[in-house]
Amino acid sequence: MKATIATEWLSGCSGCHVAVVDLHEKLLGLLENVEFVRIPVLMDEKDYPEADIGIVEGAVRSEHDRVALKKMRSKVKTLIAFGTCAVYGGPSGIGWLHESSDVMNCAYRSGPTNSGTESPDMNAVPLEECVVPIDEVVPVDIYLPGCPPHPYFIAAAIKAVLDPCAPRITGKPVCSDCTRKMRKSENITLKRGELTAEDQEICFLSQGVVCLGSVTLNRCLAPCPKRGTACSGCAGPSLDIVNEPQLDIRTLVAKRMNMLTGIDTTDVTSYIEQNAKTFYAYALASPAIYKKPTVEIMEWTGETTKLN
């Protein structure tokens, strides 16, 4: 008998669902073993049918998300938190730093392209006061971060759920799949605000560009650094950072850059702190990051001025 899969999207961009469709012909192989009973991107099923595997994309941002998520949990046996938003809160986690009324104002009223008169509060579900990863609402069985997770890992994760003996997926950082070589270099200065570097064979850190590949879990097969753009950390922090309270994104990157190029560690850490909303964008709403004793997001982003 085929295993059944139901999926649901909460506050996300639906990119993770598109990644499921991106399995292409692999999807046909997968469909020999599983059957989708609910997938909003492919079929019109409003109800929540019983299923063996539940896949949830997106963070909990509105009341609708909370209700939908609880319904999903009650109907499925194994729940997969799918994509960085579901696992760590994702980019919408930056909403932690602002009141939800400010977020609505900025998006719908005061923005330069808005008329300033229309507001979505007539029929839209109201926002909750903060963004939370789905595991703060219901228990989660498998976490699959990635923005979106590469189809390779989606297939592997579903296989791992269906068959306990199936090979597990990698727990290494993005660097493990990157083709660039990390070299020591001299006379390098920190290149602020740059996402790319001249030499295509050499690691970004060796060229003074901040790349988050070494502190990010590999759920993407490293497409960005292979094609010339520094990693933005979209799959969330690497396992050692999640697990060890004393390790942090900015200090680890700074230490590695310092050992490779001699750039002062405080230069790198202060640069990352100044741009905390960019470098901590994907996992800001997760207790795994914001509860770290060294992470002072409110202070770095200047949001503490509200407190004074």
């Binding site: 595991d135 498998i142 976490y143 997926i169 727990g171 999640v242 309270p245």
Partner: peptide, 26 residues
């Protein structure tokens, strides 16, 4: 003896990764 947050170890233990041995110990 280092304290590890149960929330974080829970995430790490459920990532379906290939080398969980040392993390499971933690």
């Amino acid at each position: 003896c280092f304290h590890h947050d149960t929330y974080c170890t829970n995430i790490v233990s459920k990532l379906a990764v290939s080398e969980p041995a040392s993390f499971e110990d933690i």
